[in-house]
Amino acid sequence: MVLVIRVMVLMLVFNVASSAWSQRANPAFSDPEIDPNLPNVLLIGDSISMGYMIPARNALKGKANVFRPKTNCGPTTKGVAEIEQWLGDRKWDVIHFNHGLHDLKYMGPKGQNLADPQADGAHQQVPMDEYQKNLRTIAKRLKQTGAIVIWRETTPVPKGSQGRVPGDSAKYNAAAAEVIKDVGGIATDPFYEFALSVKKEQRPANVHYTSAGSQQLGQHVAEVIAKALK
C-alpha cells in the first residue's frame, strides 16, 4: 500500500513538472520584455494563435507588450471557465480573441477527441446555440475591461481534416457575427478571408499552418492591433 502511494505521488510530481516544462518550452507561452511605457495587448486563442504569437509580438516590438494565456484557450466553454485567470490584474489596452475550431470539432459518444463526424453518437463539442451563449458571456466580460476588444474570425477547415467538417468555420463565424453585433462596441478582424489568401500555407488535411503561414498570420494580427492602437 505504501509503495502504491509513493508511485502515485511520483506520478503526480512528474505530471506537474512535465506540464510546467511544456509551458516553458513553448515560446508562445513566454512573457515579453515589458516596457511600462507601452500599451498591453492580450491575444486569446487556440493553437492557431499559438503559431502566430511570436511573429505578432516581433512585429509589434517597440509598439506594445504582447501577452497570451499560457495555455491553448480551446473552446468557448474553457473561455467562460478561465477568462478571469487569463485577464489577471493587468490593465489591457487591446484584447484580440477567438474561439471556434475547438467548438466545432466532433467528439465521440465517450468523449473521444476528433471523432469521425459521420460516426454514431458523434457530436460537435459545443453546439451552435451554446457557442453563441458562451461567446456572449466572454465578449461582455472583455468589454468590461475597458480595452479595445477585437473578435478574430475562425480559420477555414480544409478538406480531409480529422474530426472537423469543411464549411463549419464559416457557419460558426456567422453565428459569432450575430453575437458580436448584438453585444456592440467590438471590432472584427476578418481573419477568415485573410487565412484564405494564405491557403497554400495551410497544411494538407490539417487546420494548422506552416511556419511561413503562421508568420503571415502574425503579421496580419499585428497590423490589425497597430491600427487599433492608433
Rank of each mutant, 00 (worst) to 15 (best):
M8G: 09
Q219T: 09
V126C: 07
M53K: 12
V16N: 01
E153C: 11
K140L: 10
P75A: 15
D103F: 07
P158E: 07
L60I: 09
V165I: 15
T71K: 12
S161P: 00
H96M: 07
A28N: 07
A212L: 11
V126M: 06
G163Y: 03
E33G: 01
S211R: 11
Q144C: 04
L217W: 01
N26E: 15
N98S: 15
V183D: 07
Y192N: 02
T154Q: 02
E130I: 14
L10F: 13
L101Y: 06
V224M: 08
G163S: 06
Q215D: 14
Q132Y: 03
T71A: 14
N15E: 12
G62W: 04
V2R: 15
G74D: 13
V13A: 13
T155Y: 00
K227W: 03
R164K: 10
L135G: 03
R90E: 07
V221L: 08
A147N: 13
Y52I: 00
A147D: 13
R68K: 05
V221S: 10
A174H: 11
T77Q: 13
Y131M: 11
Q215E: 15
T154K: 03
Q132M: 15
G100A: 10
S197F: 04
Y52Q: 11
F67C: 09
L42E: 10
V157H: 04
L60C: 05
V224Y: 02
W21V: 08
V41L: 10
D116W: 11
G121N: 03
M128S: 07
I148H: 14
G79I: 05
D120H: 12
A20H: 12
V2Y: 12
K70S: 12
G88P: 03
S169P: 00
P166M: 04
R57D: 05
I44C: 06
W21T: 02
P204H: 06
K159I: 13
T77Y: 12
M50R: 15
L38Q: 08
F194D: 08
A226Y: 03
G218K: 03
R57M: 09
S49D: 07
M53C: 03
R24Q: 13
K181P: 00
K171E: 11
A177Q: 14
A115V: 10
I34S: 11
F191G: 00
L229C: 09
I44Y: 04
P109H: 10
V179P: 05
E193G: 02
R6F: 14
M11D: 00
P39S: 09
S19V: 04
S214G: 04
W92P: 08
E33F: 05
W86A: 04
H102D: 10
G79E: 04
V9H: 02
G185T: 11
P156A: 05
L114K: 13
K70W: 01
V198W: 01
Y192F: 14
Q125H: 14
D116Q: 09
L101Q: 06
K200V: 01
I34F: 10
I83W: 06
D103H: 07
P204S: 05
I150E: 04
N173I: 08
D103Q: 07
I138N: 03
Q216H: 07
Q125M: 13
S161T: 15
I180H: 09
L104T: 11
V66R: 08
N58K: 15
Q23N: 12
D46L: 06
G121F: 08
